[in-house]
Amino acid sequence: MTAGTAGPVPALRPGTCQLWWASARDAHPLLRGLLDDAARERADRLRQPAARALHLTAHALARTVAGAHLGVSAGKLELTATCKRCGGPHGKPRPRGPLGLSWSHSGDRVVVAVAVGAEIGVDVERIAPFAGETADRVLCGPERAVLAGLPEPHRPAGFVRYWTRKEALLKATGDGLSVPPELLHVTAPDARPRLLSWSGPARPGLPLHLYDLDAGAGHLAALASLGAPVRPVPFDGSALLAAAVAEAAASGTFRDPTPFPQERPVAP
């Protein structure tokens, strides 16, 4: 799951999507130096230590990886968000240039996805019991029927499989939960991931590609890309953050990992 380099961030190749996996256990106070003011303020508002650890790990890892690809300091990386619906300053965070970026965290897992020239969305969720009204609200009729037909012990994982696929798709399109998830119909939990239908006027004009990911014990995850397909490639985000913390402790400053010397960063 965390195969790949633990050293410098390798350059992105067209048609691939790097998946950087980390854990809430990777949170360290020195990583706060990688966050912008808004992310630090949000972290400070979180009351639960576990939630703060996930937030810190996810934002630090996203900024470290994206900054390395763009050749800028993670602490100075600019991410903008513009709502697809109203144009307001909220929605999917985006770096400059052609770099696609998405991240997610749940339970103990953090994942950051990056690709060049593709809109992507990633979601990871801890497998946990769910309320019946939640399934009624986010699943379409055929999906609810499939879920009800599963043996009861398999229903939590089945629901999470449905949810991660839908969340990844809506992140890739930039719609988020402004599009009700029940308007999307995806394949059954044990079937190859695929979007079967998208009801309503907000259906994207480009094809959507969907992938199930190995998120480790107790978690499920999915990746989606809009337009062209991508090849998911996992990397060790825990080692990347540990190296950043060690360097910060030794020098008092952050120096970001850069692509291999023979590679060039993604052009802005």
Rank of each mutant, 00 (worst) to 15 (best):
A53D: 12
H209I: 04
D214N: 08
Y211A: 03
P49D: 00
L31D: 05
H219P: 12
S106I: 03
G174L: 02
L170Y: 15
A188G: 13
L56I: 15
P232S: 11
P180H: 00
F235Y: 05
T258R: 15
V138Q: 11
E119V: 11
A39I: 15
C17K: 06
G107Y: 12
L70T: 05
T5H: 11
K84Q: 11
E152K: 04
S106W: 12
L101M: 07
P14C: 02
R47F: 11
A244K: 07
Y211V: 04
H105N: 10
V146S: 13
V230T: 09
V179K: 02
V122G: 02
C86G: 05
D214E: 12
A148K: 15
P10L: 04
C83L: 06
R155C: 05
P49M: 00
E41A: 15
E41R: 13
L183D: 10
T253F: 15
A221P: 13
E78T: 05
L208F: 06
A68F: 12
D212H: 03
V186A: 00
Y162M: 02
D36W: 09
W103L: 15
A148Y: 10
H185S: 12
P89H: 00
R45I: 09
A131R: 14
T57R: 07
F130E: 08
L61M: 08
R264G: 03
D108G: 08
